[in-house]
Amino acid sequence: MSYEMKKHRILELIAEMVEVDVSEVKEDSSFADLGIDSLMALELAVYLERDYNIFIQEQELMSLRKVEDLLRFLNTN
């Protein structure tokens, strides 16, 4: 899957989680600004593990502050 396809799917997933239009989720959006709390972040990690077979350790997950951080992490793993 290309980076652009992966990015679009992640933005869609986040938009679904916070119940906004995908156009409102930007790469430089922080998870806090989007209203994503630690429980929602864990839910996101479960989706990523299932969809991309990528395991994100809790420490790594908590270090990701923005959508672009998550995209960078996925692109390098």
Rank of each mutant, 00 (worst) to 15 (best):
I56C: 07
R50Y: 15
A45F: 12
L71Q: 01
Q57G: 07
D51R: 04
K66V: 06
N53P: 07
E68K: 03
E68V: 03
I56R: 04
V67R: 00
N53H: 10
L70Y: 05
I54A: 00
L61N: 06
Q59S: 11
I56E: 01
V46C: 14
S63M: 06
L61A: 05
L44H: 11
Y52R: 04
R50K: 12
F55I: 00
I56G: 03
Y52H: 08
D51A: 07
L64H: 08
E60L: 11
L61H: 02
I56A: 02
S63A: 13
I56K: 02
V67L: 01
Y47P: 14
A45Y: 12
R65C: 03
E49R: 12
E68D: 05
D51C: 04
E58Q: 13
L71S: 03
L74T: 05
L48A: 14
L74W: 05
N75S: 13
L74E: 07
S63I: 11
M62R: 14
R65H: 04
R65F: 05
D69N: 02
N75F: 12
K66N: 10
M62V: 15
M62N: 11
Y47C: 13
E68Y: 02
Y52Q: 09
L74S: 06
V46D: 09
Y47N: 15
L44D: 09
Q57F: 05
S63N: 07
E68M: 02
V67W: 00
V46T: 14
F73D: 01
Y52M: 06
E60I: 14
F73I: 03
R50A: 14
Y52E: 04
E58I: 14
E49N: 11
F73C: 03
I54P: 00
Y47E: 13
E60V: 10
R65Y: 05
I56H: 04
E58L: 15
Q59T: 14
N53A: 10
I54Y: 02
Y47G: 13
R50V: 13
A45I: 09
D51L: 09
R50L: 15
Q59F: 06
F73M: 04
F73E: 02
Y52A: 11
E68S: 02
L70C: 10
N75C: 12
F55K: 00
F55D: 00
Y52P: 05
K66G: 07
I54E: 00
R72F: 11
M62E: 12
L44R: 12
L48P: 10
L44A: 13
Q59W: 06
L48Y: 13
Q59V: 07
